[in-house]
Write a protein that binds this DNA or RNA. Structure first.
Length: 252
DNA sequence: CCTCGAGCTCGTATTACATCA
DNA sequence: CTTGATGTAATACGAGCTCGA
């Protein structure tokens, strides 16, 4: 990865936290999984955040899933046992039963589904092909995985967020390395400057010769523009102004 | 054309639950 | 058994876009 690519990531390093969200304490609290609301949602009525009212969603398949994330919980033991034993054959059945039983849940806050290895693998595979889904793809994948489209959508959202976070961490490490090597370069140049100044003071008649020795490359350089263009002494001065954009350090 | 509202998806921050050491 | 850390599914919300009236 080149430095210019890093610069295109939109990565911004800063100390402040940016948040457009209002303080949580000021948020209107509305959780459909709360008992008082869940009781009224067992039928086809559901709260729609977009219209801020309870609506009939019997014909809105995707919306059906939007606000209802709660699933029937299974005992932790059985899930753990399945995972430990690599029991994937029961996965689909388990998820199906959760799906079907969703309506009899909701009396005790949200429960969290753990995706099975098979489901995760399929989602990952799909994510590799395209990090976003169109509605048809979402529907198909949801059907294949026996999940709700909303769950697939959420998984992709979270997956994108994780990918971005990881990339940001990588970028951050890269920039740290660049910072380190630039600091080192700066230190070296400062030292070189000190040496040049000391040399200049020690050799007061040195300038008369219009030639100088660069201590870093130990080559003779011209002075005062008096050296002919084709002179064997003419050198391309080493760029002392370091540009990380044009010339990233070897350590990066 | 322009405007407005609805509907949708996305990114982001946050919460809450499951799991593990 | 308890507890803190970690991973992640789910929620909340604002922004941007499209589309039809």
């Amino acid at each position: 990865m080149g430095f210019s690519e890093i610069c295109n990531t939109g990565l911004v390093l800063g100390l402040g936290l940016s948040s457009t969200n209002e303080p949580k304490s000021e948020k209107p609290i509305l959780k459909l999984s709360e008992p008082s609301l869940a009781l009224s949602l067992s039928g086809d009525l559901r709260y729609d955040r977009t219209v801020k009212k309870v609506v009939n969603i019997s014909d809105q398949t995707d919306k059906l899933y939007r606000q209802d994330s709660t699933v029937t919980s299974l005992s932790n033991l059985s899930v753990k046992r399945d995972r430990e034993l690599g029991n994937e054959e029961g996965d689909i059945e388990r998820v199906c039963s959760r799906f079907i039983d969703e309506d009899d849940e909701g009396s005790n806050g949200r429960k969290k589904l753990r995706l099975t290895k098979v489901q995760s693998a399929l989602l990952e595979e799909s994510f590799k092909q395209h990090s976003t889904l169109n509605p048809k793809q979402k529907q198909e994948l949801a059907g294949e995985l026996h999940l709700r489209p909303r769950q697939v959508e959420v998984w992709f959202q979270n997956r994108r967020a994780r990918t971005k976070l990881k990339q940001t961490e990588v970028d951050c490490e890269y920039l740290k390395k660049c910072y380190g090597s630039l600091t080192e370069e700066n230190r070296r140049l400062q030292k070189e400057l000190q040496e040049l100044k000391a040399q200049k003071l020690a050799q007061p008649f040195y300038m008369a010769a219009t030639l100088s020795m660069c201590p870093s490359c130990e080559r003779i350089g011209g002075g005062g523009g008096k050296v002919p263009a084709k002179s064997p002494f003419l050198i391309t001065p080493k760029p002392h102004f370091y540009s990380p954009f044009a010339n990233p350090p070897a350590t990066c």
